Computed example of a mutant assay.
Amino acid sequence: MKSAQKIKLGISIGDLNGIGGEIILKTFDDSRMLDFCTPIIFASVKTLSFLKKHFDLSINLQGIEKVSEAIDGKVNVINVWKENVVINFGAEDPESGKYAFKSLQAATKALKDDEIDVLVTAPINKNTIQSEEFKFPGHTDYLARELQGDSLMFMITDNLKVGLLTDHVPLKDIAQIISPELIEKKITTIQKTLQQDFRISKPKIAVLGINPHSGDHGLIGQEDETILKPTIQKLKDKGYLVFGPYAADSFFGSKNHENFDAIIASYHDQGLIPFKTLSFGEGVNFTAGLKKVRTSPDHGTAFEIAGKNCANINSFKEAVFKAIEIFKTRKEYKKLTKDPLRKQSKKI
């Protein structure tokens, strides 16, 4: 009997001067990881061989020219470039950003073309990657354009899931950007994601207020009263189990987050400060709302420790596991929704 083909897991290298290469190679230096997927790194054998030697790893790299050549049980490397690249650990260099984009672009195309099943992205430097081809505040917005979806930054662990109404947006612009339409779109995305990707049929979702103390009935800003509350009520009337707005300052400290399947924060730091405080090094950044699965670790390039052989691989490894798990769960969900009788027959 032919064994099931492993999930093809594409990996973009991130900024070469950061810790991306280190955490990727150290993750797959453990050969047990190859039992779960077939990794395909979009970079170059020359570059990764340099990193392998620098970090004194025993990992075997399989150079390939196209995804179809990938071999199960091997760490495959697509040669996106073949020239020698100088790596200056910890340096913020546009040259390194150029190669980060080459890797991301090639990996994203493979994902769009169904050559790989999921994508895990190593951290980029949002400054050095900027170019005529990449004018985005981060991975999420770029992938939303390329994969044509309503993307949502969703930070996840097994016990905590935090989504954002706005992500890489200046603080001064947040109140103007948050609208009833945006709130409804983001909460709808989270609802669908929890159902299809996490097997939660009737998710409970908490919404954090825009202003301190959720505006204190309008004393500290009107947005919670005039925008958030009416939209939350509208969604409740549609059958959503959505609650709030809650004052953000005490929500996590009081452990109220444990009563919900997901929390949606109004802006980046309101959601990510508590998330990273509670789960740093174990959390995963999942781009919800896309037809394809993309995850990444919950940290950046960590230039300050790049090349020092001390980067923690836990978050990247979790990103690999979550990508595989979400892909399988979504596949099963699609089968069940296409054939509801299949679900009933299992109970007979």
Rank of each mutant, 00 (worst) to 15 (best):
K172I: 13
K185G: 00
E146T: 03
A122W: 00
I187F: 00
S179N: 10
Q191A: 02
L160C: 15
E181S: 15
A175I: 14
M155A: 14
H139Y: 07
T121Y: 03
I156E: 08
S179I: 12
T128L: 00
D158Y: 07
I174P: 12
L165G: 05
L182Q: 08
V162C: 12
D158W: 02
D117W: 05
Q191G: 00
L182K: 12
K172E: 15
T128E: 04
Q176A: 15
I129E: 06
P137L: 07
R145P: 03
D113H: 08
T128K: 03
L152K: 04
M153N: 12
L160S: 11
I187P: 02
K135E: 03
T157C: 10
E184A: 15
I116D: 06
A175P: 01
Q191H: 14
T189G: 08
A144G: 12
D113K: 12
S131M: 10
Q176P: 00
Q130F: 05
L119A: 09
G138Q: 12
L182R: 13
K186G: 05
T128F: 00
V118N: 01
V120H: 01
E133T: 14
Q176R: 11
K161E: 12
I116K: 04
Y142D: 01
K135A: 09
L182F: 08
R145S: 06
D113R: 07
F154H: 02
I183G: 04
T188R: 14
N127K: 14
S151H: 10
T189P: 05
T140C: 03
E181G: 08
Q176H: 10
P180A: 08
K126N: 08
I156N: 01
P170K: 13
G138K: 07
E133D: 14
S151R: 01
S131Q: 10
D158G: 01
F136I: 08
H168S: 13
T128N: 07
V169N: 00
P180V: 10
A144N: 06
E115V: 00
D150Q: 10
T189M: 08
R145L: 13
A144M: 12
L164S: 10
D158S: 15
I187K: 02
L143R: 08
I177F: 02
A144V: 11
G163M: 06
N125E: 03
M155E: 07
G149I: 04
Q148K: 15
D114M: 06
I174S: 10
K185P: 03
G149M: 04
G163P: 04
N127T: 15
I178R: 08
D173Y: 09
E146H: 04
H139D: 11
K161S: 13
I177Q: 14
S179Q: 14
S131N: 11
I116N: 04
T157D: 13
M153I: 13
